[in-house]
Nucleic acid binder design. Structure first.
Length: 414
RNA sequence: GUGGCUGUAGCUCAGUUGGUUAGAGCACCUGGUUGUGGUCCAGGGGGUCGGGGGUUCAAAUCCCCUCAGCCACCCCA
């Protein structure tokens, strides 16, 4: 083990993994564009208040997971733990609410101080979308459908299932919260220690508890649906109907609760059992109160985020690497010609590897190691004839090709 | 933050009740082949045994601390 270790929970994204990540991001960006979502990027750090005020004072992210520091100017800065708050801030500081609705796609690193395990890192990466300024259920439908389309395109949809729930509007949630607090308070002593704390801070999350004793109590808990007012249940019914119309299969999970305070109405998660305890692959919901809570004009919003590392683990090898052509010069004269030739080929669109040193055998070996498609051999014999030997590295066949015809001849190896 | 398991070469792993210079496969390098890779043969380099401390005549092996990874909890993407 090397004594120089990366910071806990961080890791290097080396070429194989970078290619998978790139594929995930490109797929997300391309599909999002097709749905009318433009890419945007907000800073990876913000004033701490941007997150502390909006995510909820009692949320785990704020209480224990934020990477916060004081910068040299004395400001409290936080590395972003998620993407939505930054977008909302940008909407306000940029005066973008004049141009609603807005549709954004983003990709980038997020930071949470958590204990790392499989599918969970301290610096991880997400792609996400936000739809701002649409209060209608069709917004939720579009956003979820886009998520489903991306998972389809990546070929991982079959490993996931869509869990759907509603948290209702503010009044409904408050009403449900009251009923729930009453129910659990009567059974407080039977709840796990964790859930007793949840009861004081965020009682809805008791519904999500994995503790066996809690689960037994949760089974008898009041249903959210009984507290939903007409507006809330109509809204949810429209979302469900829209997904049905699009053929997006979903599962009602009335125990699905999002961790962040700003969610309302629709909450959803595409989950998988292929990642151990980390089941959420793509998750989000509606956050109508967020922008206003941050000090901006009342602006409805709905969106989701998806972990790039988690998606990468589901897609297997991803797309194959482009196979290059290896140019192999023999001798100083050939080296000079090869340098120029290589540059011309690259500029004309051919992917070329030019070995930096070594004898022919070593260069051929390298060509093989990088999985080159063909070798272009330039030696004295070839130079005399203004030609190059082109060897197909898959078949082993080779032939002499005039330099003037080389570009065209290499076309067949693309 | 809590609990459990694990840490030996670049990778995957052997290493007996503590006992000489810690091994294998793959990978890498060199040669067989001075203009031909992928197969084969021969040879070679590479290890603070995660780190620190302790017990002992002697520690990869036993004990303590620490770091990291994995798993579960918490929470989530």
């Amino acid at each position: 083990m090397a004594s120089l270790q990366p910071v806990r929970g961080t890791h290097d994204i080396l070429p194989d993994e970078a290619r998978r990540a790139r594929h995930v991001i490109d797929t997300g960006r391309n599909l999002a564009a097709r749905y009318g979502y433009d890419e945007a990027a907000t800073p990876i750090f913000e004033f701490s208040d941007v997150f502390a005020r909006t995510l909820g004072e009692t949320s785990d992210i704020v209480t224990k997971e934020m990477y916060t520091f004081t910068d040299k100017g004395g400001d409290q800065i936080t590395l972003r733990p998620e993407g939505t708050a930054g977008i909302a801030r940008a909407l306000i500081s940029g005066g973008l609410s004049q141009n609603l609705p807005l549709k954004f796609f983003y990709a980038g690193p997020m930071f949470r101080y958590e204990r790392p395990q499989k599918g969970r890192l301290r610096q991880f990466h997400q792609i996400g979308v936000e739809l701002l300024g649409v209060a209608e259920p069709i917004g939720d439908i579009e956003v979820i459908a886009l998520g489903a389309a991306i998972l389809d395109e990546l070929g991982v949809r079959g490993n996931t299932q869509l869990e759907l729930n509603t948290l209702g509007n503010t009044q409904s949630r408050a009403a449900y919260r009251d009923v729930l607090v009453e129910y659990f308070s009567d059974r407080r002593g039977d709840l796990s220690e964790d859930s007793q704390q949840r009861l004081d801070r965020n009682p809805l999350r008791i519904l999500d508890s994995k503790n066996e004793g809690d689960r037994a109590i949760v089974i008898g808990a009041p249903e959210f649906d009984d507290s939903l007012d007409a507006e809330s249940s109509d809204f949810f019914a429209e979302v469900c109907a829209g997904l049905d119309a699009l053929g997006v299969a979903w599962h009602r999970n009335s125990r699905l609760v999002r961790g962040l305070d700003y969610y309302c109405h629709t909450a959803f998660e595409f989950t998988t059992d292929a990642l151990g305890a980390q089941s959420a692959v793509l998750a989000g919901g509606r956050y109508d109160g967020l922008v206003e809570q941050m000090g901006g004009p009342s602006t409805p919003g709905v969106g989701w985020a998806s972990g790039i590392e988690r998606l990468s683990m589901l897609i297997g090898d991803g797309p194959e690497k482009t196979r290059a052509v290896a140019v192999i010069p023999l001798g100083d004269a050939a080296e000079a010609v090869a340098l120029k030739l290589t540059d011309e080929l690259r500029r004309s669109g051919v992917s070329v590897d030019l070995g930096f040193r070594g004898k022919m055998k070593q260069r051929m070996k390298r060509a093989n190691n990088i999985n080159a498609r063909a070798a272009v051999i330039l030696g004295d014999d070839e130079l005399e004839q203004n030609a190059a030997t082109v060897r197909d590295l898959d078949s082993g066949e080779q032939e002499l090709v005039p330099l003037t015809a080389l570009r065209d001849r290499l076309e067949q190896f693309r």
